[in-house]
Write a protein that binds this DNA or RNA. Structure first.
Lengths: 183, 183
DNA sequence: TCGTTATTGACAGCATACTGACAGACTGCA
DNA sequence: TGCAGTCTGTCAGTATGCTGTCAATAACGA
């Protein structure tokens, strides 16, 4: 038995898992600090943008667009509807589906939130020099992209218009069928 | 470049906030995939390591060591105690405090989990080339470190032994008194 | 056409996280 | 010594996220 010594806390601090968790903690804290007055969370913001980009989208396709779990998205949409930022409407086409639209109020909030969002994104990266930021973002984007299928809620951009475009039915081939084509 | 008045989803995808959230999602998914059989989450793992490193630590100091919110840590410790991986004991010194110790069962689980943890950390970074991983980790560590005070639960290593070492009482000067001295 | 399969939104249950508040215990200092 | 202020664990409330499951509905295939 090699009897490798167990990891110490100092080891944990330098591991990607710990650092990603910390960075997410920090990013959310900064976001809320900037947007808290507008009562808008990172997740709600992303959902709003996606709905405005794709009016009439349904919840399942939205979850693929913003990479939320379908279960989680339900409660997020409920909160957005309670705040009257979006509406959920049934469709005659498919009685299972409820389509999503942004309200004028939602549009106003989004416009108002923009400067705060920008400040938040700026602050997260502030400790790095401009050149470092660029490297960081490139590597992070690559990492997220190539790990896309690791999470339960992978990003699926090509799904967004599937319904509307009457795309051919999907054939799930055991595991990850849709490798995204964009890089 | 962004001639659009409002951000589109394509913009959101390239913003640090979105990418950090995705990466955390992915990191947790990979961790759970590797360690799920052991019924161990990333947070529980970090707490276990810290308790083993610092037997007799109390919950408040532990929360500073692993950068959890004090409120959150309560329920985490409760779950660890239910699984009999740790014990919480009152101390005669200070009736408010409950000190934490790992059980033999906790030690066994930690030892058993090590290979899975290593695999998980490895998999998260797998899409990057070795040189890229190094750059990524360096920049990420720097970013987390310099943003440390942005979250509610900043890392406070110097607190860990405060009680035991009978350190001089800290003087809170309006706001965040402990600016980390290490950079 | 009709049974099988897939999809959709919803829900229950668990685990992080954060805000804010609290009672009880402790400490420093007047 | 007494008391004002601090610290500790805990709790209620809110918001993500995940694993499952379910009924209703839709689409497919023999």
């Amino acid at each position: 038995m090699p009897n490798k010594p167990s990891p110490s806390m100092q080891d944990v601090y330098t591991k990607p898992g710990h650092l990603f968790r910390r960075m997410q903690q920090i990013a959310v804290a900064i976001f809320v600090e900037e947007c808290g007055a507008l009562d808008l969370t990172p997740v709600q913001y992303a959902a709003l943008v996606a709905i405005r980009d794709d009016p009439g989208i349904d919840a399942t396709r939205l979850s693929a667009l913003v990479a939320f779990d379908r279960s989680t998205l339900g409660s997020v949409l409920e909160r957005l509807e309670t705040k009257e930022l979006i509406v959920r409407r049934p469709t005659p086409d498919d009685k299972r589906v409820k389509v999503l639209h942004m309200t004028p109020r939602g549009a106003r909030l989004l416009a108002k939130a923009m400067p705060a969002i920008d400040r938040a994104q700026e602050r997260m990266m502030a400790p790095l020099a401009p050149a470092e930021r660029k490297v960081m973002m490139t590597l992070l984007a690559k990492l997220v992209h190539l790990n896309n299928d690791a999470s339960r809620a992978p990003l699926r951009i090509e799904h967004a218009n599937a319904r509307r475009a009457a795309a051919p039915r999907k054939r799930r081939v055991n595991g990850n069928a849709n490798e995204p084509s964009h890089v």
